[in-house]
Write a protein that binds this DNA or RNA. Structure first.
Length: 877
RNA sequence: GCCCGGGUGGCGGAAUGGCAGACGCAACGGACUUAAAAUCCGUUAUCCGUAAGGGUGUGCGGGUUCGAGUCCCGCCCCGGGUACCA
């Protein structure tokens, strides 16, 4: 059987067959045909609908392998439901605001708009050639006026509901650049662009009051459980971070000022030996300024405030503190304890103040030992005595309360509710549920985002832009230069405006919105993308929403997926939506990773700049091409910034879209992390070319289409049919269940192997059935290939209009099973039994088998375990 | 640090608590070819053994069970997220 050379190999151009697998012609032809037939055009009136959504990309200009896996999975699901007779909504669009375009603008002086449009154009072409089917009439881009006008409108609705509020929050500030830095732009406390030490600066900014929805978001998990990955729900639960405890009011001993703390351990209140405030706590400066302590305290506090704002930074840096010179009075026992400022106290969590109980909290214990602060034991274990001078770690388990006033002698866990009641009776505290989830800071001091539609009038204060005046357009008379801060502030035409309330002079808000706001409602706009009167028509949404299947990367587990859920809930509460959860089912693909290289001097390097011995898909112990220093290699998510991207275009050129699509799902389960390697693609190519050749060779000797299968069949016929129907069952399960395409394809390979070895003894109707079933189950994965062969097999209609093949479970059933016989867990024999033979019959036959008897001589049988259709285990002594 | 994943042959991986390594890649041997590529057939966890056969083996250390890659406890390593990358 003549096959085809691997494309791109030495003489790959040689033409061997008349009907060669010319993927280029085939793929172009079918893509045109699908477009002409409107295969992916969503019908808003049809009954049985399916909304398949994949996360829209940021238009970087080039698709990367993460997109390829994401959109291939989406396309497989889309086409599968199309085959199942559903009316499909499969849209695509662009998350086109964001930092990279702005950075490019600052670097090159070009405006982000044309830059973004060009990128969209390039990526659209790449998507089309991949064969992904979308309803392009619904395409949206978040940076287009027609879209961001409604993002602004939605902001105004939030504002009206008091869900958009202004608060002060610290940002990473770089003085020379005159700009706010993202956490990822800060490396080791320094600005990645100019190397200057980054400062924390307080800024007045806009927030969405998301913390009010903490409990609702948590409650929503009940609906999602079973349909979303458990890992995502677990991460969101931790992110929301509900904890039950009490608010307790302390007072500054010297001034009487109240400082409240939140604690989950009110049972340890009698053991408080000091209190800590967050460095950003407004009280710190108020207390010490003008006192003898100011000189000593403020420099330390300022240095704390200079440190990074990211949670990772805070958690990992050394815990340090300084005494303010003041004390607080413990309301439960009147004790005066010192008030400190500590860098582990977070302004954004609880009240920004924490009580410290070193005896019963590990972090407090370490801090107390470091600064020689007292340790007071108030819970004692029942089996030993604790000694504050010698103990080496905090005692955090349950025990009996001591030195705790009215609670002495009680078990601390059991006493907890009574302690809280007692605090409430004394009016010094209150039962409280605290959440880690913070309000959503949406202000960005950047140009390339949706302007926040707010004005500031000297007379009227904060004034929302009237809805009729939307959109607030991004101006073009701006300067993109380093050291300019937000380019929006350089536009005179933008900044100066008239107050709609008093007609006086006003200034515009120059902050734009976080791009997560844009992506929190895009799935709604897809349903009604051309609506000029509203962001969407609720009756149209009624038809399509919620999304039936959402597919995207696991890296969005918390942020995007929580923001989108929150947004949907708020819109629901405003009466704009009838549902609270936007995504019924979620699938998260693993990240595509590849080795990246880092040189201390030259930062991230492309592989071509690394010299050294190639080992598999990476370079071991390489050196930098520019300076010869040894480079650090890291297996990490592919990203442009780390120069470890793979360009899918080259692969489409060489192998065609179908081979690439097949390869993407044929080797590994898509929810696991994937290490990028091209070495396996040969297998996908071979499956297609071999199947191609096989089908074309078989066609002349097959029955005509629709010929019924004879009732009398030989054993080879039966065996092939059985395998064929099993294959359909497996592929169906793979798609409906866990996206396990790799095992589905393995079953196709097995089926084809059996076909090859037995075809010449098999009836022409069975051969046709097998080949047609294989092509039809592979169609969602390799659509162009399947269409072409389907046509060759004598069918006129598109394969995607012919439905999903139906497996006959009676045909698929095995009638005999081989069962291993174990003796003490080791396999000593194998026996054949008809399927579903009962235990007694199996046991009798096994004990009668000579291979088994051999091992049982002179031994006592302790137990016989018979698992029908599986195995037999005999325990002997 | 915290939360979530993962660790199985040379490689990607398969396995409702029930035969570890399906399927594929790579490698090796053979067929075809003047030759190479492609294609086809076969071998391929590892150790002992000529063989028949037997032992060991799913990151490490314990445990539960007739039976553990799978469940439980304690570690190690790798990846993701950690609120201004998207």
């Amino acid at each position: 059987m003549a096959g085809q050379p691997l494309p791109g190999t030495a003489r790959g151009e040689r033409r061997i067959m008349t009907h060669e697998y010319d993927f280029h012609t085939i793929e172009t032809r079918w893509q045109k045909k699908w477009e002409k037939e409107d295969l992916f055009k969503a019908d808003p009136n049809a009954e049985k609908r399916f909304y398949c959504l994949t996360m829209f990309p940021y238009p970087s200009g080039v698709l990367h392998m993460g997109h390829v896996i994401n959109y291939t999975l989406g396309d497989i699901i889309s086409r599968y439901y199309l085959l199942q007779g559903f009316n499909l909504l499969s849209p695509m669009g662009w998350d086109s605001f964001g930092l990279p375009a702005e950075n490019a603008a600052i670097r090159t002086g070009t405006h982000p708009q044309p830059f973004t449009e060009q990128n969209i154009e390039k990526m659209t072409a790449q998507m089309q050639r991949a064969g992904w089917g979308y309803d392009w009439t619904r395409e949206i881009a978040t940076s287009h006026e027609e879209y961001y006008r409604w993002t602004q409108w939605l902001f105004l609705q939030f504002y009206k509901q008091d869900m958009a509020v202004k608060k002060t929050a610290p940002v990473n500030w770089c003085t020379p650049c005159g700009t706010v830095l993202a956490n990822e732009q800060v490396h080791e406390g320094k600005c990645e662009r100019c190397g200057t030490e980054v400062e924390q600066k307080d800024m007045s900014q806009w927030f969405f009051a998301m913390s009010r929805y903490a409990q609702r978001l948590l409650d929503g998990h009940e609906k999602l459980r079973g349909h979303w990955p458990d890992a995502v729900l677990a991460m969101q639960e931790d992110w929301i971070g509900r904890s039950e405890g009490a608010r307790v009011d302390f007072h500054v001993a010297e001034t009487g000022k109240t400082i409240s703390v939140f604690t989950t351990r009110p049972d340890t209140l009698f053991g408080v030996t000091f209190m800590s405030l967050a460095p950003e706590h407004p009280l710190v400066e108020k207390l010490v300024s003008g006192t003898e302590h100011e000189q000593r305290v403020m420099p330390v506090v300022k240095s704390m405030r200079r440190q990074g704002t990211s949670e990772k930074d805070i958690a990992e840096r050394e815990k340090v503190g300084v005494w303010t010179g003041f004390h607080v009075t413990n309301p439960v026992n009147g004790e005066k304890v010192p008030l400190w400022v500590a860098n582990f106290a977070l302004m954004s969590y609880g009240t920004g103040a924490v009580m410290a109980v070193p005896a019963h909290d590990q972090r407090d214990f370490e801090f107390a030992r470091k600064y020689d602060l007292p340790i007071k034991i108030v819970i004692t274990p029942n089996d030993c005595e604790l000694d504050p001078t010698t103990m080496t770690e905090a005692y955090v388990d349950a025990g009996t309360m001591i030195q705790s006033g009215p609670f002495d002698g009680r078990n601390n866990r059991e006493a907890m509710p009574d302690i809280i009641t007692w605090l409430e009776e004394q009016s010094v505290g209150k039962k409280t549920i605290n959440y880690r989830l913070r309000d959503w800071l949406i202000s960005r001091q950047r140009y390339w985002g949706a302007p926040i539609p707010i004005m500031y009038c000297d007379a009227c204060g904060i004034v929302p832009v009237p809805e009729a005046d939307l959109p607030v357009r991004l101006p073009h008379d701006v300067h993109f230069q380093e050291g300019q801060g937000n380019p929006l502030a350089t536009s005179e035409s933008f900044m100066n405006c008239t107050c709609p309330q008093c007609g006086g002079k006003a200034r515009r808000e120059t902050d734009t919105m976080d791009t997560f706001v844009d992506s929190s409602w895009y799935f709604l706009r897809y349903c009604d993308p051309h609506n000029m009167e509203a962001p969407f028509d609720p009756t149209v949404l009624q038809h399509w929403m919620p999304v039936d299947q959402y597919i995207g990367g696991i890296e969005h587990a918390t942020m995007h997926l929580i923001y989108a859920r929150f947004f949907t809930m708020v819109l629901h509460d405003m009466g704009l939506l009838s549902f609270e959860e936007p995504f019924k089912r979620l699938f998260c693909q693993g990240m595509v990773c590849k080795t990246a290289y880092f040189c201390h001097t030259h930062k991230w390097l492309p592989e071509s700049d690394v010299e050294g011995q190639r080992e598999g898909d990476s370079i071991k112990d390489g050196t930098c091409k520019h300076c010869g220093a040894s480079v650090r290699s890291e297996m990490t998510k592919i990203s442009k910034s780390k120069y470890n991207v793979v360009d899918p275009d080259k692969m489409f050129d060489r192998f065609g879209a179908d081979t690439v699509r097949l390869y993407m799902v044929s080797d590994a389960p898509p929810d696991k992390m994937q290490v990028w390697s091209e070495s396996g693609i040969h297998g996908a190519w071979r499956l297609l070319t071999r199947l191609w050749t096989l089908v074309l060779q078989q066609i002349p000797s097959l029955s005509t289409p629709e010929t019924s299968i004879p009732t009398e069949l030989g054993s080879t016929d039966v065996a092939l049919r059985r395998k064929t129907h099993q294959c359909v069952v497996r592929v169906t399960e793979a798609i409906e269940g866990g996206f396990q395409f790799n095992t589905a394809i393995a079953r196709c390979n097995e089926l084809l192997a059996l076909f090859r070895s037995t075809a010449d003894q098999v009836h022409p109707t069975i051969r046709r059935e097998t080949l047609e079933f294989v092509i039809r189950v592979l169609a969602p994965i390799v659509p162009h290939f399947a269409e072409e062969l389907w046509m060759h097999l004598g069918h006129q209609k598109s394969i995607f209009r012919c439905g999903w093949p139906q497996a006959d479970m009676n045909v698929a059933k095995e009638d005999e099973v081989e069962m291993p016989v174990q003796i003490n867990g080791k396999i000593r024999a194998r026996m054949q039994f008809p399927t579903d033979t009962d235990q007694a019959t199996i046991q009798e036959a096994v004990l009668d088998c000579p291979d088994v008897k051999k091992w049982l001589q002179d031994k006592t049988i302790r137990k016989i375990i018979v698992v029908p259709n599986k195995l037999v285990n005999i325990a002997i002594s």
